[in-house]
Amino acid sequence: MSGIEILEVSLISAAVIGALLTGFAYATWFERKVIARMQARLGPNKAGPAGLLLPAADGVKLIFKENVIPAAVDKGMYFLAPLISMIVALLAFAVIPLGDPIQVPWREGLMRLGIADFNVALLYVLGVSSFAVYGISLAGWASNNKYALIGGMRSAAQMISYELAMGISLLGVVMIVGSMSVTDIVLWQKSHVWLILVQPLGFVIYAITALAETNRAPFDMPEAEQELIAGYHVEYTGMRFALFFQAEYINMLTVSALGASLFLGGYALPFVELPWFGDLAVLLAKVVLGMFMFVWIRATVPRLRYDQLMDFGWKVLLPLSILNLVLTAVGIVAYQNWM
């Protein structure tokens, strides 16, 4: 890799991180606005036109908040936990391709639109996202608060059980495409069909486990406001709290983008070839669709109970994802032999 390519990747990384941090802010605005409309309210409408400046106001407020550190917290872990959450949330986005490679004037060859593309990308995503549980359970453990502790324990159990079903549900995709690289998967869909048509069950399982992985309603057990007040981040204030908050929303953006790339054709549209900004816009639209689903579900259904959540994960989702795996394998063999 030449120096100029390293520079390119660094710039793209910076742009993606910047986009994610802004995207987080506007994801909160989007959620508030959409959920308000669903709940017969207006939502933010005071700070700027249509409340668009509210995320900025929130950010300023959080930065200026006093950082209250409760007595007898485990300081090292207490400071580390939000950082783990945040960094892990940002890492997973690295393998999402943002568009077709483009011709650039300053060098030969094509420039990849995306940070990284390697042959075990999906494995990397699963590995990195399973680290997120450390952030949450360490926060719960270190906070010296019983509510936080329960929240942390819940999240550890929940994320570990749903990770399994999520991983297996993605295997179907890998088997069909024959590659773990997200770019390859998107390209396969570009030349064949969207994988949601081939893997409907896999997509449903992925969508459900995505809700659980991001701790969103109806699986928001770790923070269950009405039971645990705020769960694992109950003792965090100011920007430390904001880091958890950011991590949650960036995770939502990431799983939306990943779901779009794996099942909905990623940045590509069928039958049309778009310029690079068109690719970006298509991906953004699909991410917004995913975010809308998150908000819609949150506005509609009650929260599951902890034991029901575990039952559902182990007794329903896991067998279903294994079934999906078997069906896919049988389907592939049948296709290869008889078609």
């Binding site: 959920i35 669903m38 709940q39 309210r41 009405q226 509609t300 009650p302 929260r303």
Partner: peptide
Amino acid sequence: ALDLGASSLMLYTFR
């Protein structure tokens, strides 16, 4: 409903 995490219904009934 709100206590069980379904926040929308509260706003409808309060309406």
